[in-house]
Amino acid sequence: MNKVLKTLLGVWNTKTVVAIAIGAALFGVLMNFGGIPIYTNTRLTTAMIVPVIVGSMFGPVPAFIACFVGNTIADLIGGWGYWFDWSIGNGVLGFIIGLLPLYGAKINEGIFKPLHAVIYAITCVVGNAFAFGVITPLLTVAFYGGELTITFLQAFAGGIANTAVLVIIGIPILYALARRNARGRNLVMEEEKEE
């Protein structure tokens, strides 16, 4: 149990702090440049890849923080106001999709197998359903009051877009990054491949 907690929390040395910060900055940049708006508070963005990467390196809690801080910063620099409900929702999603090390996918050691991809895809669906189907709508209603249907609708749109990006773009990227890291580790010249 202790070990699980450790994997969840990650090791908080300077490297972790910096990596989370860089992750948050990257999140902010992607949100502002790479986003394609689809609905009022929702954009089709590749930024959600960031918590996956941070999670794979340092665990879900760092992923949560990278995502939450990144989202906050994106809101602050994007100037579309500051929305706690969405930031927290995103953070929760970051936590869930950042669970990678818990099921053995270690991108920076080059480990990402088909089984990991399947589990990852499931966490994406579950994570989005939970974050935007439960957390964000509840917070929205609690913070700003109002119509649950609309909030759900908006959350639904956001959730679908996120899931799509996370699965369709995320899995190839995770494979690509894992491959890069795997080969980078032992630089043995593969003579037999030479023709």
Binding site: V17, V18, I20, A21, I22, A24, A25, L26, G28, V29, L30, N32, F33, G34, I65, A66, V69, G70, I73, I77
Partner: peptide, 19 residues
């Protein structure tokens, strides 16, 4: 965690330039 905020802001322009 506070450092995360300031470092993130510090490197946003650098990352945006890379982007």
């Amino acid at each position: 965690i506070c450092t995360i905020f300031s470092i993130a802001f510090r490197y946003i322009p650098d990352i945006a330039r890379d982007y």
